[in-house]
């Protein structure tokens, strides 16, 4: 049965789009059918992070308005056959995104895909509430930093009250994904620790993504980090998180960059 996930955070710039792309590719790696949807109408970026920006023909709003059929708007990833993207529109008119329209698109996607991952815009406005509206489960992306944790708490409140599942009296599954984490800085007491964040938000942990230059490199070249460098620390952390989403028991650790002598020798060149 299809699972609808929303990747949300409240605060901007914490890694929602990066995480959507990385998890989407990690889930699709074994041929599982995955679609990632950009809900950031007017400011789309998932296409750019996925490296499909030159191939966008139609978008989510076109499908909702009936200008295009869903299969025409879906962009198949060039590297992974089972991974698809539904881009957001660049129109300034955010009202074009309607609740009924989103419901229809999600229903149709449920018949075609195993995982439907909705990349929420920042904030708590229409785009963000519609991205979470029909989700079965939510991934809350949080940086170990005060404003991000506070906004995550706010979003958790919305997930428990404003989603279709919550309104039916059911509980929406919530998973916390901590990104840009630095073990050394947390150990020195310069950064909130994982335990601090978990205690404050009391939400189950899905994964810990270490701060890494590989994430910037991946977005530079337009590839999910799980495809551009699958052995890098952040990619391994995303693969672990994807396995947990599929229900596997994976012990929680913060992957670190393995540095062989060869790697160290070329470290400067590779940077």
């Amino acid at each position: 049965m299809a699972q609808v996930l929303v990747v949300t955070s409240g605060k901007g710039g914490v890694g929602k789009t990066t995480s959507t792309a990385a998890l989407g590719a990690a889930l699709a790696h074994d041929g599982t059918k995955v679609v990632v949807i950009d809900f950031d109408v007017g400011l789309r970026n998932l296409d750019l992070v996925m490296g499909a920006e030159r191939r966008v023909v139609f978008d989510l709003i076109n499908v909702i308005n009936g200008v295009a059929k869903l299969p025409q708007a879906l962009i198949r990833d060039k590297r992974l056959e089972s991974l698809h993207l539904l881009p957001a529109s660049q129109t300034r008119d955010k009202d074009a995104l309607t609740e009924d329209g989103v419901a229809k698109v999600i229903d149709e996607l449920r018949t075609k895909f195993d995982w439907i991952i909705c990349d929420s815009p920042a904030g708590i406005e229409r785009g963000a509430t519609l991205a979470m509206r029909y989700a079965d489960a939510a991934i809350i992306v949080t940086n170990p930093e005060v404003s991000s944790v506070r906004d995550s708490d706010r979003i958790i409140g919305l997930l428990d009250s404003k989603t279709a599942k919550a309104e039916r009296g059911e509980r929406i599954d919530k998973h916390l994904l901590i990104t840009r984490y630095s073990s050394s800085r947390a150990a020195r007491g310069e950064m909130l620790s994982i335990d601090d964040v978990l205690e404050i938000l009391s939400t189950p942990l899905l994964g810990i993504i270490p701060e890494s230059q590989e994430v910037l490199r991946a977005s530079n070249v337009g590839s999910p980090v799980t495809l551009s460098n699958p052995l890098s620390a952040p990619a391994r952390a995303y693969f672990d998180a994807a396995r947990r989403l599929k229900g596997e028991q994976v012990s929680m650790s913060v992957p670190s960059e393995t540095r062989s002598i060869f790697n160290r020798l070329f470290a400067r060149k590779a940077a």
């Binding site: 750019l48 490296g51 920006e53 030159r54 910037l216 490199r217 977005s219 530079n220 070249v221 337009g222 551009s228 460098n229 052995l231 070329f266 060149k269 590779a270 940077a271």
Partner: peptide
């Protein structure tokens, strides 16, 4: 990919070109 990385000067030039075309 990582081997490819050794022979170029980082990914910023790729980002720059992608943005120029898109914008």
């Amino acid at each position: 990919m990582s081997l490819f990385n050794f022979f170029r000067r980082g990914s910023a030039p790729i980002a720059r070109e992608r943005l120029q075309i898109l914008l």
